[in-house]
Computed example of a mutant assay.
Amino acid sequence: MSATLIKDVKETFIKKFKTDPLLIFSPGRINIIGEHTDYNDGYVFPAAVNKGIAAAIHKSNTGKCTAIALDLDSTIEFELDKLKPSKEGNWENYVLGVVAEIQNRNKVIGDFNAVFKGNIPGGAGMSSSAALENSVVFGLNELFDLGLTKHEMILISQKAEHNYVGVNCGIMDQYASMFGIKDNALHLDCRTVESKPYKIDFKDHQLMLINTNVKHSLSDSAYNDRRSACESISKLLGIKALRDATEADLETIIDKVTPANYQKGLYVIQENSRTLKAAKAIEDGDLTTLGSLIYQSHEGLSNQFKVSCDELDFLVEQAKKNKNVLGARMMGGGFGGCTINLISKTEAKAFSETVAKAYKNKFNTDCSVYFIELSEGTHIVNNQL
């Protein structure tokens, strides 16, 4: 958590609204393994990280609500009984959506003011949207004594994204951001929405993210296409979701699906199995096996599920050439964003410099490198800052 972020939102809030706010920090997330398995009722392995959104929030007595996104230098004002999605479709819909979904549950909230600021890199696939939604619902729950559980809060955040933002997301991002535990990853079952925390000791290794700084326009349509392919295979198999299928089951319908869709189904079944093996590897402190599973995940995402891109594949190939990297893969929806790398601590700096140079030579654009720590989920920050 960044003390500077908290300080900035607090000072801005006091200057603007002349009162001490409630302070919330809501983290972004990474996902170690288990990509595109969440909407197949499968397993994922996310963790909250030490980058996120800081929010200062308090009641308002002006008859309206004001929300300020500090890093965007953008302000909105709205009335609680006149909520509708903003045409701009920007950050404000995450805020308005959460407020609307709280009211849909017949919870009464009053007017409030809020200031937000984040340090999650844009387009990195680290779920700044879930962090923002969670900070709003968590803050309002506290401020107006709504009595919502954390489970209810993440469903409100998810619904806000479906109904106000128009993204039919799974539950992983909101869950990881809300329930994160320091130094732990959460092995989350997306069907039961229950997780088991795994304390992770990376020993003399660490996680490093490399952002391609590209986002190919294909991403939204391809996401929906992958989702419907998975659903149609489940239907053919007569099951609720691909989580219930085995490779042998899939073979029984090989002549009823296109070869491309067969590979997509196969990828999901195998990726689900990889997350279970990853949990075991972490339990055994076996980082070599974990790294190998991470590499296999990327192979599947690139060659079977086909959601990678040249830039992501290039970064993973660079990682494979370096014996100090145990595993690397694309992380997130695909077609851009970050790779996640499990790398030796002593070699991380040298590798990041070599990769940055190679990437610039190949694509004539810069990649960005981030080091992250696994951290606590959405929480109230002590006001004594």
Rank of each mutant, 00 (worst) to 15 (best):
N211H: 11
N211E: 02
T212D: 06
T212I: 08
T212N: 08
N213M: 09
N213Y: 00
V214I: 14
V214F: 03
V214G: 07
V214A: 08
K215G: 01
K215V: 04
H216M: 10
S217D: 15
S217A: 15
L218W: 02
L218A: 13
S219D: 13
S219W: 10
S219Y: 10
D220F: 10
S221D: 14
S221A: 15
S221E: 15
A222D: 12
Y223K: 06
N224S: 12
N224D: 09
D225F: 03
D225H: 11
R226W: 06
R226I: 04
R226D: 08
R226Y: 06
R227H: 09
S228Y: 13
S228Q: 15
S228D: 13
A229V: 11
A229E: 10
A229F: 00
C230K: 04
C230P: 04
C230N: 03
E231I: 10
E231W: 03
S232N: 14
S232F: 07
S232E: 14
S232H: 11
I233Q: 00
I233P: 01
I233V: 14
I233W: 04
I233K: 04
S234D: 00
S234P: 02
S234M: 06
K235N: 11
K235F: 05
L236I: 03
L236S: 08
L236G: 02
L236Y: 04
L237Y: 00
L237C: 05
G238T: 05
G238H: 05
G238E: 01
G238L: 01
G238A: 10
I239W: 06
I239H: 05
K240A: 13
K240V: 12
A241H: 09
A241S: 15
L242C: 09
L242M: 13
L242N: 03
R243M: 04
D244E: 15
D244P: 07
D244F: 10
D244G: 07
D244Q: 14
D244M: 12
A245I: 03
A245E: 03
A245G: 01
A245C: 08
T246Y: 09
E247C: 12
E247S: 13
A248N: 12
D249R: 00
D249A: 02
L250A: 06
L250P: 09
L250Y: 08
L250E: 04
E251V: 06
E251P: 08
T252Y: 05
I253W: 03
I253T: 00
I253K: 04
I254A: 14
I254K: 15
I254F: 09
D255H: 12
K256S: 12
K256Q: 13
K256W: 03
